[in-house]
Design a protein around this nucleic acid. Structure first.
Lengths: 152, 152
DNA sequence: ATGCATGCAAACTCTTTGCAAACGC
DNA sequence: GCGTTTGCAAAGAGTTTGCATGCAT
């Protein structure tokens, strides 16, 4: 778009945040950016077992915490499953959460600035971020449930 | 406003939900409806210690779970403090979350149906509920932080 | 070389569960 | 009286912490 995109743009993000570039951090960050499943710390830990067998759970938690603090990723706690999920998409957007299968999808193309501006104007808060959790049944689960319970 | 409000409207809600009306349930439900602080289970437990000293924490957790399942209250997990907060306001609205003092306020008068409709149309999801978390600095904390750190 | 990051294990918090006694309907 | 709800205590899950070793800068 502007310059060429180096293959290690994530390394650049880490350096700009003044975080040391360790293999663990880079692997966690890469896995999260590559995923669209909004994984938990445990998900990432298990996924990276094959690549970094010696990595500890604490490192995953510490790293995710560091990335959040430096604004590189965001937390999602809206899944109501007791675990914090993470999201590499840091701009305000909508999370679609299926109350049956508990998957989380992103909706990036519904504009939210109007809502944000209205809230800012009325509340006097200084805007930092916004997250919308939309709870519903995904199309797949609608069909499944309709088939299972024809009466309801 | 419309009719007279009977003092035990909450009892009616419990009965409509086919939940037995126990002193513990009523006290928890009342405390939550009366509060605008979006308390956690532990908050409610501690608050009700003086009224119901024999009540156990498990009862608070069980009761809140039952109230959520029957649609009388809602969970808020967006505070990112590791605990689930609860809200007696069950219509879609915006939660204003101060990232400095961690208080949660409601914004009830910003319309959200447009956003909900757009998402429903694009996603094919069957709408159930929506929750908006707006993160920012409340006016009080803006002043406090400005005074503490004049350079930033 | 300096000091931040990692790995390990224990600790901590929040929440859930099992079971007997108590209570609402 | 029947079946749900409570209270207690223990267990469970997710996350954090302390400290010595290792590694990025």
């Amino acid at each position: 778009m502007t310059d060429r995109l180096p293959p290690d743009i994530l390394i650049g993000h880490l350096k700009e945040a003044e975080l040391r570039v360790t293999p663990q951090r880079l692997a966690i960050y890469r896995a999260l950016v590559a995923s669209d499943a909004h994984p938990t710390a445990k998900d990432l830990f298990e996924q990276l077992q094959s690549t970094l067998p010696s990595m500890s759970q604490a490192t995953v938690y510490n790293t995710l915490q560091a990335l959040v603090e430096h604004g590189l990723i965001q937390e999602i706690a809206e899944a109501h499953d007791g675990a914090v999920h993470y999201d590499a998409e840091t701009t305000p957007h909508i999370n679609l959460i299926c109350t049956n299968c508990h998957r989380i999808e992103d909706v990036l193309d519904v504009p939210l600035h109007d809502v944000a501006e209205q809230v800012t104007a009325r509340s006097g808060y200084q805007f930092q971020n916004m997250r919308i959790a939309y709870y519903g049944l995904c199309p797949r689960c609608q069909q499944t449930l309709a088939a299972d319970q024809p009466g309801e």
